[in-house]
Structures are given as structure tokens and as C-alpha cells.
Amino acid sequence: MTSQTILSVDSITKRFGAVVALRDISMTIEAGEITGLVGDNGAGKSTLVKLISGVLRQDGGTLAYDGQPATFTTPAQARASGIETVYQDLSLTGNMTVWANVYLGRELIKGPRFLNILDKAAMIAQTRQMLGRFAMNVPPIEAPVDALSGGQRQLIAIARAAAWGSKLILMDEPTAALGVAETQAVEEVIRGLRESGFSVLVISHNLEQVFRITDRIWVLRRGQVIGQRVTKDTHPDEIVAMITGAAAAMSGNLP
């Protein structure tokens, strides 16, 4: 499998006061793959995602995105370069309609520029088209997001992330709050993203899911990279051992 690296993390360290959240982390995300990021609570997974998406800044080390050094100081900068993040809380506004959420912050404008009049008809039509690309069952475009199911909301958050010419999509626990059928639907959408050429990083606690959808798995423990495995060449037991530290204990190199 020849792959091209879309994002590389090089020797990154992040501290919160006296706590070292990430210690000298290096990893890569390969283009066109679904990469899983696993680890126990407090391993530093969410911190790493926040560094990549520009929410946090590292204390040491560098990021390179698409072959260029990346220094994002705001999420907007990361987004402008093509890195979208789907947060655990989905960042949806419940009182607003589906189309308003998809276009939030990037509304289409019609008429004289200074009036900033919303082009609602165009946004509604394009949202329908956009959601149709990812889902068989398009949720009602003009209903408030509050009226939708958890799976439909997840779909909207993912579709929004994929809609803006992005290349890399980061997802923090995309199915944590979903039922079995909805989880399946969202996993289908994530696979669809890979088929459309997106690179995806998924944080998940659900190892079965990680094995169902990812191409490669990175394991973090206590702020350090334990290792990476190609999904089809490894076994859940090995990953569990890496997550819990059993592997390190067995081979005798305790951190």
C-alpha cells in the first residue's frame, strides 16, 4: 500500500500547567485513509485533535499538513486550509434549521453586497443535494435540528465538515451517543467519506468499531504514542494490550 502523508505530527509536547498532556508525540495521518486514534481516558486523544484543529497550540514540536509546516492559531485557520473537526457535541445550533446549521458562518449572500441578504433558497437546495450525497434518508432541511434524531444530527455535522472543500476530517467519538442502527448508518457515512477521497481521523472508544472502519490504528497512552498498526494486520487483543500497557509490561520497557 503506497500512501501519501497528509498530516504529520513531529515531537509535539503539550502541557497544562504542571500536567504534561502530550509528551514528544510523533504520528502521521495517511491521505485517503481512515485512521483510528485509541487510548484510555486521559491518554491525550482529544488534546491531540485540538492541536491539529487549531483550538490549542503546542508547547513544543511541529505539525506539517499537506507537505507544508502548519501553524494554526485559530480553528478558522485550520478550517480554511481544509481541516474540519466534528466535535463530540457536534457544534450544532438546535433552534436553527438544518440548512442554517450546514451553512453557519459561511452563509450564501444575494443582492447588494453591503446588505448581506441571505440566499435561503440556494442554501436549502444545496443542503438537500449535499446531504443526499451522504445519506439515503435526507432529514427535513427546513426543520430545526432539535427535532432530529441523534444519528441525523451526526450526519449533518459530518456533511457540514465534508462540504467545504476540506481534505482532512477529524472526528471525536462520532457514535458515542448513538444506538446500533444509527451507529451503523454513521459508519457507512464515514466509509463514504473515504471513497470520496477524504482523509479521516476517528477517535473512538469502541474497538469493534475501530476494527470495522479504520485502515490504521494509532495508540496513545498517558500522553505518549505507543505505536501504530495496520488494522488488517493486527488483532483487538494486541490493541487492548497497547492501550492498557500490558504490552509494554510484557516486553519490559515500562514508560
Partner: peptide, 24 residues
């Protein structure tokens, strides 16, 4: 009800954190 400013008033009132994350 028709301009982006008014739209953002609804967005901030509904969920200020999200509005901010979306670049508003």
C-alpha cells in the same frame, strides 16, 4: 429575518459556543 446579521443573532442566542466555533 433576512440578513446575515439577524441570522447570527439567532445563532448566538441559540448556542454561542457553536456560533463562535463556526467563526462568527
Amino acid at each position: 429575518h433576512r440578513t446575515r446579521f439577524g441570522h447570527y443573532v439567532f445563532a448566538v442566542g441559540g448556542n454561542a459556543k457553536t456560533a463562535s466555533e463556526m467563526g462568527i
